Computed example of a mutant assay.
Amino acid sequence: MRYFLHFAYDGTRYHGWQVQPNTLTVQAEVDRCLSQVLRQPIHSLGSGRTDTGVHASHQVAHFDADLPDGMTLELLLYRLRRALPTDIAPCACTP
């Protein structure tokens, strides 16, 4: 199923949104933590891009996943908040 993740971030320590080789990006952190929480490989697709050091007050990305048994969207969001660095703040996750 497809899910939409709404989040904000402070981009100070990131080299933009989009995954790039050998550097820290917001998308790489989101994908890493979603994969960890959902225990399956996740690749998100953002609604836009940002440059190095740029912040976002409302970014949306979607990803496809099968939620594990017993995993609600509220539980997913709670676990994702705990897994992500504090400068990336997920606000909502909707189908």
Rank of each mutant, 00 (worst) to 15 (best):
G48Y: 15
E29G: 03
D66G: 00
A28Q: 15
G70H: 06
L73M: 10
H62T: 07
L73C: 06
H55Y: 13
R32L: 02
D69V: 01
D64S: 09
A65K: 04
T23E: 14
L45C: 12
Q59M: 13
T52P: 06
L45I: 14
N22K: 11
V26E: 08
D64H: 01
L45H: 14
P21C: 01
E29H: 04
Q20G: 07
L34V: 07
S35H: 10
D51F: 14
P68N: 04
V26R: 12
T25H: 10
H43K: 08
L38R: 02
G70A: 04
T72C: 05
W17D: 00
M71W: 06
T23Q: 14
H43W: 06
S35W: 14
N22H: 15
H62E: 03
L45T: 10
L45K: 11
S47M: 06
D31F: 09
V60Q: 08
H58C: 07
S44E: 06
L67H: 05
A28N: 02
H43G: 00
G53V: 07
R39N: 15
G48D: 11
R49G: 08
Q20Y: 10
D66E: 13
I42P: 13
R32V: 01
A28R: 10
D64M: 01
D69G: 00
V26G: 10
N22P: 00
Q20S: 08
T50S: 03
D69R: 08
S57V: 10
Q18L: 12
T72N: 02
G16K: 10
H55P: 05
D66T: 04
R49T: 12
L38C: 05
D31G: 09
V19I: 15
H62P: 02
A61H: 00
P21N: 04
A65D: 04
V19N: 09
G70W: 01
L67G: 07
A28M: 02
V19G: 00
G48T: 11
D69Q: 09
V54Q: 00
